[in-house]
Amino acid sequence: MKRISIFFSLLFLAFSSPAQDAQNLLNAVKKKLEAVKDYSGDATLSVDVSFMKVPDSKVKVYFRQPDLFKIIKPDGISILPKGGMNVSLNSLISGKEFTAVPGGYTSVNGRKLAIIKLLPLADNSDVVLTTLLVEEKSALVWKATTTTRENGTYESNMEYGRFSQWGLPDKILFVFNTSTFKLPKGVTMEYEGSKNTNATKPTGDGKGRVSLFYSSYSINKGLAPGLFK
């Protein structure tokens, strides 16, 4: 019994250093993100889903700690995958407790990124596992892959620029799995002419993509909670 506990102690010691690093890195990321109490942003939303034809549209993005997040198209319709609120790293990470597990390093576009896997401590969290690819020196998350209980797995790819000091991306590409969409033709009274043009459209890889290009952020100016209803 004692030998076993020694083994575990050794094991713990052997791995404590990278684990500690991962937690530290997470804390750095969180610290950066938590500096943003709220923001509103102007962005262009592009939806690329095989069965959807949605024009790019100007949207307003609102965030308020801990996880209030909303994308609104004024006077219009915006369409986002379920769980789309997790497009935002802030609402994914900010103010939440995780166990961070290191996953080594990888290189994306010539950028060396640390892999950390986050296990939420809260029992009732929809998120099961989040994998972050983080640039260590800037504490910026370039990619987040999240597996949820309800809404499947999706990934967010971030690009930073003007707002990197707040940990806010200029561009987010959100990739998610889509099922197909079908209604009976008898209901929709389909026009045959439309079908011909649809046939030329590639069927896609079963994944949908939503991207947000931010043109501006307004940070920590205070937002009424009523906005998110």
Partner: peptide, 12 residues
């Protein structure tokens, strides 16, 4: 915005 559901696609 006008959202139209067709048999195999959604148009906005």
């Amino acid at each position: 915005d006008l959202m139209i559901l067709k048999s195999t696609e959604v148009v906005i």
